[in-house]
C-alpha cells in the first residue's frame, strides 16, 4: 500500500462533536482517551479544527438547531473523511422517539461509516469501532 494510505491507517486524527446529547456518550468517548482505555496507542489524536481531522466522531440525537452546523463541519473536513456515530441516539434517535426538535440519527444529515450502539457507549466499544474502521480502510 502507498505511503499516504499507510500513514492514514497508522495515525487517524479525530474531531469530536456533540449534537444535542445528554453527555453520557461524550464522557465515555473522552474516557476512551484516558489511561485506562488509551485509544492513543493507535495513533489517534484529538484535534481542534475540522480542517486537520480525518475522522469525525459524533454523539447525540441531532436537534433541529444544530443540524445545519453539523453539515457545515462535515463539509469543512478535507477528503477522504470518515464518520463514526457513537451511541444509540446518534444511530437512530435512541430514547427520544416522539420528541419534537429531534431529527433522530445523524445519518439524516451526513453519511455514516461506522455505527456504535450503546446507551451510553462503552469505551471498549469505541475502541472496537475505531479498529473496525481501520480494518475497513486497509481492505480498500
Amino acid at each position: 500500500m502507498g505511503i499516504i494510505k499507510w500513514s492514514r491507517l497508522k495515525s487517524p486524527w479525530i474531531l469530536y462533536m456533540c449534537t444535542g446529547a445528554c453527555n453520557a456518550c461524550d464522557i465515555e468517548v473522552i474516557a476512551a482517551l484516558t489511561p485506562r482505555f488509551d485509544v492513543e496507542r493507535f495513533g489517534i489524536l484529538l484535534k481542534g479544527s475540522p480542517r486537520h481531522a480525518d475522522v469525525l466522531v459524533v454523539t447525540g440525537a441531532v436537534s433541529r438547531h444544530v443540524a445545519p452546523r453539523l453539515k457545515r463541519i462535515y463539509e469543512q473536513m478535507p477528503h477522504p473523511k470518515f464518520v463514526i456515530a457513537a451511541g444509540t441516539c446518534a444511530c437512530s434517535g435512541g430514547v427520544y422517539w416522539g420528541c419534537y426538535n429531534v431529527l433522530g440519527g445523524i445519518d439524516k444529515v451526513i453519511p455514516v461509516d461506522i455505527y456504535i450502539p450503546g446507551c451510553p457507549v462503552r469505551p471498549e466499544a469505541v475502541i472496537d469501532g475505531v479498529v473496525k474502521l481501520l480494518m475497513k480502510l486497509k481492505g480498500g
Binding site: 444535542g20 453520557a24 436537534s63 435512541g94 426538535n101
Partner: peptide, 30 residues
C-alpha cells in the same frame, strides 16, 4: 441556547410513568 433542546417535557406526555424514568435519566447523562 437551544442546541440541546430535545422536547423532553412534551415527550413525557406520551409515556407511562415507568418509561418516564428512563427519559428523565437522559436529561443529563453525567
Amino acid at each position: 441556547l437551544g442546541n440541546v433542546h430535545r422536547g423532553i417535557e412534551k415527550g413525557m406526555e406520551f409515556r407511562t410513568w415507568v418509561q418516564g424514568i428512563f427519559l428523565v435519566e437522559r436529561i443529563c447523562g453525567i
